[in-house]
Nucleic acid binder design. Structure first.
Length: 135
DNA sequence: ATTATGACTAACG
DNA sequence: ACGTTAGCCATAA
């Protein structure tokens, strides 16, 4: 299933970057895209995730990609993953220690200041790692 | 081949 | 603060 070298590299980069997200942290589609060297293609990150199983509990796929730690730039869990996928995603995040709150409109929100993970580069690419929530 | 859609986001009004 | 517009491009029809 070789789409193209470039696309394949993008997929690989996306999955790799997501796997670098620590337990109890979340980041955004745009940030994953940027880490892969494609800051203008956050949508494609969503496309990559769509290829993964909808059930985060089974995570028996492609290299255990913890896609539940990827949310949108507004700090909300993308409600389109499945009929109740966002709900399921929220439960999985809570199991990892992430505080997920629900708005009056039923939107599932995560506080970036508490759980955000936005390194400038992949920790694996750095000789020394630094991280922390910024505000 | 083209048209439409979408797990997105920054910019603009 | 909120809706609209523009950019992106893999998938699906």
């Amino acid at each position: 299933m070789v789409r193209s070298d470039e696309a394949d590299a993008f997929y690989f980069g996306v999955y790799s970057a997501i796997q670098e997200i620590p337990v109890g942290r979340v980041t955004t589609y745009g940030h994953i895209a940027a880490l892969c060297g494609y800051p203008q293609r956050p949508r494609q990150v969503g496309v990559c995730l769509k290829h993964l199983p909808a059930d985060p509990s089974m995570r028996h796929h492609n290299g255990n990609v913890p896609w539940q730690r990827v949310i949108n730039a507004k700090g909300l869990i993308s409600p389109r993953s499945a009929p109740s996928g966002a709900r399921n995603q929220a439960e999985t995040l809570r199991a990892e220690g992430v505080t997920v709150t629900e708005n009056a409109m039923g939107e599932l929100s995560v506080d970036f200041d508490t759980h955000g993970w936005f390194p400038e580069t992949l920790p694996s690419e750095e000789t020394s790692s630094q991280e922390g929530a910024e505000g």
